[in-house]
Computed example of a mutant assay.
Amino acid sequence: MSRSTWHPAPHEVLRTTGRLIAVDAAEGATAALPAARAAVRRMPRYGGGSDLAAALAELYEVVGWILFDAGRHRPARSFNAHAYDLARRSGDRWTGRLVLLNHSMLLAHLGRPRAAFETAGRVRGPRPLPARVDSLVLVRQAHAAALRRGDREARTLISRARSRFLDGGSRHDPAWAWWVDEPELIGHHGWVLARLGAYDRAIPLLHRAATAPGPSYRHLFTAQLLAALAGAGAWRDAEALITATAPGAGRISSARTTAQLRRTAAHLRTGPRVPAALRDAAVFLLESL
């Protein structure tokens, strides 16, 4: 039987999705790529009914996220579009909203802040969103505003995101909102401030997020912390962070994270005011990566 005519049960698709999420959270996107590719090869592109279509939308949303964090941007865009189409066909608005939030992040990463801002805004509808989801919309828009150098707007949006998160969870939260927690919001707050060059406020927030337990992809906050320390000229703290990070850097399975670490280490290796000891540490980090 061909893949085009075989229709798995929705619960089988959801089990596959759950396994992908577990691998990504524990080991990172690059480690999850083989399982994501195997799932794509095995599962049909479209479902025979709304329940199957909704389950496939969830699966392909996760595949799109893994591809993005693994640095595979073009296929990530394709799977985002396909997941959104499946969610729309099946009436699964919550998965559709998550796809839009993921795609906003991808657009910001690709240097398209206006499109990122507008895509995040499409998540809202006539009814108010639960606090956690609304806070994530505001986070995505704050990053986009920061990239457009909208200093005041970005600060306002990220502060509103923190305030909305503090409104707490509700029974209306979608199942995927489990990862929208305090360290996530704190980390993004610090990252937005670092984008604006407000390193004195960004560094403590990024440190709190980077040292909190959580999914593997939050190594990204460590990379952003190092970039902020370098931007602030906090040489001793940057050297200490590299010393702590470099031994395990080769096991980081997020292309976004390793790319940021490489950029910062390359800058520190050649920076005119960087102390010799920190230059040596930067070389060690590059070798470890």
Rank of each mutant, 00 (worst) to 15 (best):
D173T: 06
H172K: 10
S163P: 03
V137R: 07
R162L: 09
F165Q: 03
R164Y: 02
E184A: 03
D167T: 00
A144L: 07
R152D: 02
G197F: 13
A198H: 09
P130C: 05
F165L: 13
A194P: 04
G169M: 08
A142G: 05
P174T: 09
V137F: 03
D167V: 07
H143M: 04
T156D: 03
V180M: 05
W191T: 13
A131L: 06
D134P: 01
A144P: 10
A161M: 13
G150Q: 13
E182D: 10
A161Y: 03
D173Q: 08
R152W: 04
L138C: 12
T156C: 01
A144H: 13
P174L: 09
A146S: 04
A142Y: 03
L185Y: 12
H172R: 11
L147E: 06
A146D: 10
A161I: 09
G190C: 07
A154P: 12
A144S: 03
Y199C: 07
D181G: 03
A161R: 00
G169P: 05
G190F: 15
D134Q: 14
L138M: 08
R164T: 15
E182K: 14
R195A: 02
W178V: 15
W179A: 14
H188T: 08
R171F: 15
A154S: 02
L129K: 00
R148Q: 05
W176L: 10
F165G: 12
A145L: 05
G187C: 04
R148W: 10
R149F: 00
H189F: 13
E182C: 08
P174D: 03
A142H: 12
W179V: 15
S135P: 11
R162D: 10
D173C: 01
H188Y: 15
Y199S: 14
H189R: 08
R162I: 12
T156Y: 00
I186Q: 00
G197T: 14
S135K: 04
A194W: 01
R149Q: 01
R195Q: 01
R155W: 02
R164L: 00
V192K: 09
V180T: 15
P183I: 06
A142F: 09
L193C: 02
H189T: 14
R171L: 15
G168W: 11
R162C: 10
W179Q: 04
S135V: 03
A131M: 13
W176R: 08
A145S: 06
S159P: 04
H143G: 08
S170R: 13
T156Q: 02
L129V: 07
L136C: 07
L138W: 00
H188V: 11
A146F: 00
W178P: 06
